[in-house]
Amino acid sequence: MNTYPNIYRASKFKLDLRDAFRYILRHVTGSLVAIPLRPPLLASLALSLLLNYSFAFEAKAQNTRNAILAVDAVEAGKYIEVRIRLREAPASSPSHFSTANPARIAIDIPATDNATETSNRPVNLHTLRSYAIAQSEERSRIVFMLGQAMPYTLSTEGNILLLRIESRPSSAARPNAIPPPAQDLPMLKNIASRGRPHHC
């Protein structure tokens, strides 16, 4: 039986604070530094470090968003292959749709920033003329400008979105999406508008 409960609790509290302070100090500085500290100062430092450590960790978690790193287009047989490289695999399948007039393919990638250092770029590869990227808080939209509407497919391979567009028109070629409402046609001016998207 402990006949000195108050002394025991105070001693245990001081030990817990020392352990907490040394643990945080080790993670912040990368080393364990022996510093003689009195209990009130130890408690203040431990609490301050603990709060700062928690806030920094939470801020880092909140700021971790996916990003578009590169967009590359090459000719592959009868297709144009466009590889959209992301920082990490998308958490959900990007939505996409196309329009016939003007001929466009739009891909929406949720919770993703544009890290390509460009908002538009010419391509001039068969029917693919250029692309443009617009970013909002909810997503980034990549719009591909075509010479004419062509069938396409979109698939996900890890952190790569693979867009395959038929490079040459054929008699059976038809665009594979219903055009969205007219107000969504200037897709970069109103990124919040949505058409009738598909999902890959």
Rank of each mutant, 00 (worst) to 15 (best):
L42I: 13
P102M: 02
L125P: 15
V74M: 12
L41D: 15
R121Y: 14
L154E: 10
R38I: 10
N101G: 04
S155F: 02
N114R: 03
L51V: 14
P40A: 00
T112W: 06
Y152K: 03
R38S: 15
A149V: 11
D108A: 08
L49M: 14
E137M: 10
A34S: 11
L86D: 09
F57K: 03
Y131I: 08
T118V: 10
A106L: 12
P94I: 01
I160V: 14
R65Y: 13
T156I: 14
P39Y: 04
L37V: 08
T118M: 14
D72A: 07
I109C: 04
H27G: 02
H96P: 11
L47R: 09
V143S: 11
Q62L: 15
V143W: 00
Q135V: 10
V28L: 10
I105H: 03
H126I: 02
T118R: 06
R129N: 09
T29N: 08
R139V: 00
I133L: 13
V82C: 07
S31W: 04
P36Y: 00
S140E: 07
I68N: 07
F57V: 09
L41N: 13
Y131E: 14
P39L: 05
E117C: 11
A46F: 11
N124M: 13
S92T: 14
G158I: 08
N159M: 00
A134P: 07
S93Y: 08
G147M: 02
L49I: 06
A134N: 04
L41I: 14
S93R: 12
A76M: 11
A61Y: 12
R121D: 09
A111W: 14
L42P: 15
F97S: 01
T112Q: 05
P102V: 03
E81V: 01
A61T: 04
A70S: 13
P36S: 03
A100W: 01
N114P: 05
S95K: 03
E75Q: 09
K78D: 15
R129C: 08
A76V: 09
H96V: 03
T118L: 10
D113N: 04
L49C: 04
D72P: 13
E138P: 01
D72L: 08
A103L: 07
R85I: 12
A46W: 11
L42E: 13
L37D: 14
I80Q: 06
A70D: 15
A91Y: 09
L125W: 05
K78L: 14
N114M: 09
K60I: 15
I24D: 14
